[in-house]
């Protein structure tokens, strides 16, 4: 993990509710992917969601910015309920940043243009100001010198850090990470995790689907384990890893930590 000692002092969790999900169900056709999800995320919480593949963890966080539609129950993000109302959806999406497994940078735009596009067109920020913000966040993820290159010229780890910077340029209050390191070579995973840790240290509300258990132990204040579309177990990282309660959790942990 990170060389420097992780500063947990600023990682304060407030009482304010950032995301409230209640009795939420989702189907793909006849397949019941998410079953009775109840979950409250407080502002400043860092939550790691893990579970075997097909357990619905990605689908869950993709429901939070409505890349997936839920059919039953309620999702309230920052006080805005997600319904079919397009205005609400756009409002939530501009408050919630998302980082994808495959980066999804826009290959026809430079790194800088990738970062300024949404602030200019959605937030109506003047171009110059948007560029300054973009450079600020590119410096933060430690690749300001790549600003005028195209995504195809960058390594995977660099692309993922650009994707994080692109999200941050919208000044989101919540960040969603959908397996951000799963498509990366081992030597590049660390640079992305370091960036995410830094973000956590600044008090960002984060939901992260990942198999990086080191990251979960270092940063998360809650680990959620999902299986078959349900939340099976959740706990503080220490308890979760040292003393799992459910048999499924034990099996899963033995499989991913076993060697």
């Amino acid at each position: 993990m990170s060389e420097h000692a992780i500063d947990r002092s600023k990682m304060k969790v407030s009482d304010e509710v950032a995301i409230q999900i209640s009795a939420m169900n989702k189907w793909y056709g006849t397949f019941h992917v998410l079953r009775d999800i109840n979950m409250t995320v407080q502002r400043g919480e860092r939550i790691v969601i893990c579970g075997p593949s097909g357990s619905g963890k990605s689908t869950l966080i993709r429901c939070i910015n409505r890349l997936e539609e839920h059919q039953q129950g309620q999702i309230v993000v920052d006080g805005t309920e997600l319904t079919n109302d397009l205005k609400n959806i756009d409002k939530v999406r501009s408050e919630v940043g998302m980082v994808f497994q495959h980066f999804n940078l826009f290959p026809h735009l430079t790194i800088l243009e990738n970062c300024t596009l949404a602030p200019i067109w959605v937030r109506k920020v003047p171009k110059k100001e948007a560029e300054e913000t973009a450079m600020h966040f590119l410096r933060k993820v430690k690749i300001p010198e790549q600003a005028n290159k195209y995504p195809g010229q960058l390594s995977g780890g660099q692309q993922q850090r650009v994707a994080i910077a692109r999200s941050l340029c919208m000044r989101p209050r919540i960040m969603l990470f959908d397996e951000p390191t799963s498509a990366l070579d081992p030597e590049m995973i660390k640079e992305v995790l370091d960036t995410m840790i830094e973000l956590a240290e600044e008090g960002m509300t984060m939901l992260c689907v990942t198999h990086e258990m080191g990251f979960a132990q270092a940063v998360a204040n809650r680990v959620i384990f999902m299986d078959q579309g349900q939340i099976v177990e959740q706990n503080e990282p220490k308890e979760f890893f040292n003393n799992p309660k459910s048999e499924r959790t034990k099996l899963f942990l033995s499989q991913i930590l076993g060697h």
């Binding site: 999406r93 826009f106 949404a118 067109w121 919208m170």
Partner: peptide
């Protein structure tokens, strides 16, 4: 993923089409 990234950034349909 290109559509999803455009959506996730809050671009509406016409802007996502035109810009991305």
């Amino acid at each position: 993923g290109q559509y999803e990234a455009a959506d996730a950034l809050g671009l509406d349909y016409w802007r996502a089409q035109r810009l991305i």
